[in-house]
Design a protein around this nucleic acid. Sequence first.
DNA 1: CTGAAAGCGCTTACAG
DNA 2: CTGAAAGCGCTTACAG
Lengths: 328, 328
Amino acid sequence: MQQIADAAGVSVTTVSHTMSGKRPVNPETATRIKRLIEEFGYVPDAGARHLQSGRSRMIGLAVPDISNWYFGRIARGVEEMADELDYGLIVCSTFNSDPRREKRYFNMIRTRMIDGLVYTAGRQISEMNELEKVAASSPVVLADEGIDRLSSLPWVTSENLEGARLVAAHVRQLGHTRAVIIAGFPGLNSTIERVAGIREYFPNALVLNGDFEMQSGYDLVGDLLANDFPFTAVFGCNDLMAIGAIRRLREHGLRVPEDVTVVGFDDIEIASVITPGLTTVHQDVVTIGRTSARLLIDGIEAGSFDAIESVVVPVDLVVRGTSGPVAS
Amino acid sequence: MQQIADAAGVSVTTVSHTMSGKRPVNPETATRIKRLIEEFGYVPDAGARHLQSGRSRMIGLAVPDISNWYFGRIARGVEEMADELDYGLIVCSTFNSDPRREKRYFNMIRTRMIDGLVYTAGRQISEMNELEKVAASSPVVLADEGIDRLSSLPWVTSENLEGARLVAAHVRQLGHTRAVIIAGFPGLNSTIERVAGIREYFPNALVLNGDFEMQSGYDLVGDLLANDFPFTAVFGCNDLMAIGAIRRLREHGLRVPEDVTVVGFDDIEIASVITPGLTTVHQDVVTIGRTSARLLIDGIEAGSFDAIESVVVPVDLVVRGTSGPVAS
DNA sequence: CTGAAAGCGCTTACAG
DNA sequence: CTGAAAGCGCTTACAG
């Protein structure tokens, strides 16, 4: 910047002001300075700005694993909105809540490397106390998954309860009565709500807890089959577990949907690609990401979350080929 | 830091040195200072460090779309390695080479927000000139896709040619002679190499260019069928296009692999989930990401790329159910 | 409409 | 083993 000032024969003060527009500058001088800036390809140093302003115009996004399709969609949404509001994004995979990694990202707030954090809980939150401490003094928004202990924070989630009701009503209407629920981690709100929604229609449904991976759907169904447990419908609390369940059923010689109906939750890319397509609940994940970023940045710029309202994003039932009438 | 210094009754100089270990400090004093740091929960300000050192210890990753599974895996690898080497990661989706976005991320280097960039080309590189300029003065590593005009930059790619040979030999061995190649964007090195590898075994194979999306595989095969073009094997230059091809063939009443063999390239998650599983070439995408990050950071810390060697990551043939003997 | 100067929070040569 | 002070590149009250 000194270079520009020298070349233009003015002070750095004036250069700074022509860039920011925060005080009037002689039009001719301004034009000259702007041309020089263009010519030199000058851009202000981020570190200096940051030090001076105390703001980095960067937000963080913590997800369990960025290479998971679902979290990738959230990241996409957060990035879109951050970009629109002229913020940069630092992505932090917590690698399924590795405490060391989580701490590291919480430190990014403390060092003021980022102005705020969108936090997406994976399974158990290992560093809950840390998160609580950070959230007490810095902007944090919870995406995808609310956390009871942090109920004061703004959050953005899907209509989990309603989604579960929709898909359960659909399966019930097909005549099924003996259902099994492959649920997620017991402590998560989404798990609790989805199970509750399904149980409104299947009060006696057996609940098994998986880990949201395909393998656990496969294994849990295997256990049921090995014990001759009777059921005609399987509710996966996410699509991956539902798909694992389908594989296991097929290996056992059962047809989907003729013998067993299987439904999921999420509507991930794979759900529409497999044959037959998976009946599931569509979540608008990009919108969850976008909204989270907007709430966070609104809060950062307002200096408080007092006026920020949490958001529930609607879901849709998507009926494809894995659900059918109960075998008579 | 001033606070810590005051509380410990020493100068900030000493506090700084006990943290960095760059010069000896009286053990007792050091202990006292460390305790105070712990107690206050003090962490040094990132902006100030950055301004002082000229380094941000952040690297950038530019990918066409972070929500694409393939690029998500690259991001995962880059993030893992960055973390191991104590760097942070700023992810930048270029939204398929949106010029405005690309410029923005190139500016991150100029503002020294990031110390270097891992660049993954999507389709055509729209802001090639910009990239060239940036790369001339700043650390840039090309991941996944080399670029001829930037041949001086270090790059990390899969063994595209060898992979294509492997899968082509496999299909040839099954007796096929009439093959079609659903290639990627014409200008990309990966496309050129994969086509070349296949053509070693199928010199007359028809080459059609798609855009790496499922729909284009679907559409291109549709065109062939509409024209009664004769073929018994389809090479997708990625899995998504291969899967699109399979869907179109099935809708036309053709069976895979009984009537037509279809193979892909990548070995994305979906490839093993569909029925039958997709025969494809497995790329170790996480390793591509990890290696790119390592080369970049090595170059940053060495202050030059002179000693940095590009890397070719091996691939494997994965034979699943979509390839079979030619119908007699 | 413009400039000199203080200050953001660190690191590091210089001096002791 | 330790400290006073300069300086990294900006922004902004203060003064004109």
